[in-house]
Design a protein around this nucleic acid. Structure first.
Lengths: 191, 191
DNA sequence: TCTGCCATGTAATATGTTACATGATTGT
DNA sequence: ACAATCATGTAACATATTACATGGCAGA
């Protein structure tokens, strides 16, 4: 039940149309909750029906016309309640780890190539996050002179650092995995 | 498309019935790919129909009777091909990070309690992984004298270390998040 | 007018979750 | 006989993915 709350958060940050939301889900919000435009349009319909959001500048029932949405008080309340609620962390679900486990049974053919590819992807993502951090959360040359970060900025920086920590973890783990597979002779294991 | 391959891997490690698989998906395999018994039974049916697995000790079409499955050569080939294939890492999808982003807009009421709860859960999971590592992959007092780990063991250890690294990352991140929210006064942000 | 892109949407399918149903086996 | 548990399954629903459809608008 996270997608509706992701959309409410995005719309509170800035009222948007479906396509604008889709683009924001390809960047900032999408860094920790991805969604396609089909999901977003469907969910916008539901949220409107529930009275959590409403369309601005109406009188345009046409199909190809832009439709902006804003959050209603009921939507803000719903989101506030969700933030305060309980939700256990989901168990990890990672196809790459599964493939490594499978490789322990049927052999590692083709795996190192894939590990190198993933390493490059994670390094690239890490670099992107670090750029964002330098741009949006740089402390400046004299931290004491800078204004104290707002609570909202502090939270957004924390979320970004989770992304950075995660990517760094994968980069380190993949590097170690490749180092080992270079050292050990990697013959087929599945005989 | 990972669940069928998770099941093929599990069945190659050891032929099992549906319920036995379910239990293994609550432990070892479930640490990086979870599944309920309903998913497993449905997928077992499909895999059998595709000719990837077959039921052992047949002649028992009854409902409550145990049914063991084993992997056929076609199933092993399918799995080998999947291991060698390409599959991009999925973007992160984490409700807790989403909630922190939402909290930046509507306020942090109730969040610290939840962060502490998650911290305890991750610490517990980390401890469990470390127990498994000590039990199954301990180098012993004299590593040089111990037999070299097999390629399969090396891979399984790597997968376990990914789990350990992930949990440790969350423990550290949550600890830092709590330390900051103790320092900074956490007033409602959504005014 | 034609092409390309902006924008919203439908349809079909796949996967995952929750609740419930049925039969078999074992111990009391 | 009964209850508890093992074991396999169905049904309904929710969510996510993929492919396609429709209309508006701007410029060549």
């Amino acid at each position: 039940m996270s997608l509706p709350h992701a959309i409410l958060t995005a719309l509170l940050e800035r009222p948007s149309s479906g396509l604008e939301l889709t683009r924001r889900f390809d960047r900032s919000i999408g860094y920790f909750w991805s969604a396609t435009h089909q999901q977003i349009y469907r969910e916008l319909g539901r949220l409107e029906e529930s009275g959590y959001i409403r369309a601005l500048a109406p009188e345009q029932p046409a199909r190809g016309r832009k439709k902006e949405y804003e959050v209603l008080p009921a939507g803000r309340e719903e989101l506030t309640g969700w933030v305060a609620g309980r939700e256990d962390p989901k168990p990890v679900r990672d196809p790459l780890l599964l493939r490594m486990r499978a490789a322990a049974v049927v052999g590692t053919d083709g795996l190192p190539v894939e590990l190198r590819r993933h390493l490059a992807l994670h390094e690239s993502q890490l670099a992107e996050y670090r750029d964002i951090e330098a741009r949006d959360f740089s402390p400046g040359p004299n931290p004491d002179a800078a204004p104290a970060a707002s609570e909202a900025d502090r939270l957004r920086h924390l979320v970004l650092r989770a992304g950075i920590d995660l990517e760094r973890m994968w980069v380190e783990w993949l590097t170690e995995a490749l180092r080992e597979s270079d050292t050990a002779p990697a013959g087929p294991e599945g005989a």
